[in-house]
Amino acid sequence: MTEKTAVTQSGEAARNETTLLPPVDVIEDAGGITLYADLPGVPKDKLNLHVEAETLTIDAEVALVIPEGMEPSHAEVGLPRYRRVFTLSKELDAGKVAAVFDRGVLKLRIPKAEHAQPRRIEVKVA
């Protein structure tokens, strides 16, 4: 097998391979939604966030420092990839998603669109 076919195959496999489902917390307040996702072992450059139409995709690859010739004897994290997809609702402003990734925890803030923000209507006394 040439090197090139090996590369294309691994690329195809990457799309179809089974992935781990990272645990998340989702909290909603008046201004928007905050999502936390646990992605341990993922360096910043291996984390991919996609917002397309109303779908949010978290896709991340694990990269650990593994010494040469190591043979695994027990694995609870058995796959090197995390993936989770969410459908956003209409009142969320997908264009203004803010993301922070620190020590394997992703924090996403998705604000509600301007028109969906709660508004207080002042009652004037005539």
Partner: peptide, 24 residues
């Protein structure tokens, strides 16, 4: 599966333990 998840492996020179404890 407790927290943190553990992966254990070994080489001829060492024993390697990985504890997946994000945000600690």
């Amino acid at each position: 599966r407790g927290f943190p998840a553990l992966n254990v492996g070994g080489t001829s020179k060492s024993v390697e333990i990985y504890a997946f404890a994000p945000g600690v």
